[in-house]
Simulated scan of single mutants.
Amino acid sequence: VTQNPDEADLFFVHYAPHRGDHTQDGHVVQKMLAESPYFNPDIPNHFFVHNLPWYNLWPAPPATHSLISISPERFNSKPMTHVTVPYSDDGWGTDLRTWGMEDIQHKKYLSCFVGSLSRVKPGQAQRRILREQFHACNQKGGKAGGVKEVLWSEFDKRTITYNYSEQMITLRQCRFCPVPLGDSASSKRLFDAIQADCIPVVTSDAFIFPYEDIIPYEDFLYVIPESEVAEKSFNFIDFLRSIPEEEEKQKRKRLREEKHHFIFNDPFIYPGDAMDLLMRELSLRAQLLRGRQRIIRQEAEKKKNKPQYQHQKNQQHQPQQPRHKKFFEILEEKRDKLVKHFEVGDG
């Protein structure tokens, strides 16, 4: 980080989108870019933090080519101009780090889901399948003594405001947490499960994980293809029951070791935390940006020197000729015709 803009590769667009109507946000950010003396429409050297759909921000899509977006959701389809980050932990990060590991060992449920049905049809269909399987499991008796083995707590977001603290306490009591297909390519549910020490089971093919090149997700979570979940022969509860105890312990151990990558320690930055990894991602883009600028300069230099080089090459391999030879040849032909004409007339 530098206070001298002439030394910077990237520039932060300091603007917070408004809640509610976002139609003017894109115009404001575009104006800020246009007023920046370091803005380059050909190179994305400005970055912007947001959590809004890309299409709500930009009335003119070409502007997105020159801006790096930072968001928990990948609304921008260009990977090199977007950095996916974890959702914030809503203040639970500190509390969860103080929980004793022996306290988390005792899990009440095999699995639990706390949330609502998705607003998009694919997500709704998958969640209904999982809901039926959760309910069928409990109707069969669940654990010995009639204790529920799994928990499905569903509510309507439009009419009910859920208690986030209670949700986290519930997730803490579960061994596995489904992260089903939802409204977008990411889900806050994944990060809540990680912080609650609940092994995530992702059932979305297009799920976007933050810092994928750095964090070994396969070490501490499961991913089940959407097509497999949709098969009648597949049962989510049976899949969880089939996981060996030793494998589950190893997954949870790795989850605890990687948990700090998903925590923003505002206002501090600790090695390996969410902000530190974001700085690494931006540093990578700065290196790529310098490389791209170098290529652009080299190509411009080649174009500048190419005509001169070509002219010198022609001079070396071809005899010198009048600059306007064709013009003089035409003039000579006309002169010859005139001479012949007058010679004929004189005869």
Rank of each mutant, 00 (worst) to 15 (best):
V1T: 09
D9F: 09
F11P: 01
V13T: 12
H14S: 13
H14D: 13
D21N: 15
V28N: 10
Q30T: 05
E35W: 02
E35F: 08
D42Q: 10
S71D: 10
S88E: 03
D90C: 08
G93D: 05
D103T: 02
F113K: 00
Q126K: 14
R127I: 00
R128M: 15
K140Y: 00
G141C: 09
A144K: 11
G145K: 13
G146Q: 15
K157E: 11
T159S: 15
I160F: 12
Q167H: 04
R175N: 14
G182E: 00
A185Q: 11
A185D: 14
A206R: 05
P210F: 06
D213G: 11
F220A: 03
S227R: 04
E231S: 13
D238F: 02
D238N: 15
L240T: 01
I243N: 06
E246C: 08
E247I: 08
L255K: 05
E257P: 01
H261R: 14
D266Y: 12
Y270H: 07
G272Q: 06
A274E: 00
L277R: 14
E281M: 12
R285E: 08
L289R: 02
R294Y: 03
I295D: 04
Q298D: 09
A300N: 05
Q312E: 12
Q316L: 15
Q318P: 01
K326N: 11
K326A: 11
K326S: 03
I330K: 09
K337V: 12
H341Y: 14
G345S: 04
